[in-house]
């Protein structure tokens, strides 16, 4: 028998916050996945909104490419406010 598909579950703890990945589960379709997410991951008032995404639909970056993907930003310190020198007399900026 085919395996019941895997889904990733994202929950928003309350309005104003982003949905956050909380785990995964198995369900045959999206409706059942949503209900299972509710039954499995919100038993203690963990949130008020749920997303489910088929795990196969997620494209992830390759850890072998971590250096080329993410290191080049390391020396672009002019993107951060602390790079610029403003005299203290100017006040908070």
């Amino acid at each position: 028998m085919a395996e019941t598909p895997l889904w990733e579950v994202f929950i928003r703890p309350r309005n104003g916050l982003a949905h956050k990945h909380v785990g995964s589960l198995h369900a045959a379709d999206a409706v059942m996945a949503l209900q299972a997410a509710r039954d499995v991951y919100t038993r203690r008032g963990e949130g008020n909104s749920v997303w489910v995404v088929p795990s196969v639909a997620i494209t992830a970056s390759d850890p072998d490419h971590t250096d080329e993907m993410f290191e080049p930003t390391g020396d672009k310190i002019y993107r951060h406010p602390t790079f610029y020198e403003i005299p203290e007399d100017v006040g908070h900026m």
Binding site: L25, A36, D39
Partner: peptide, 11 residues
């Protein structure tokens, strides 16, 4: 029948 239902039924 599946683990997910082992959580749904007690709810």
């Amino acid at each position: 029948p599946m683990l997910e239902e082992d959580l749904a039924l007690p709810n």
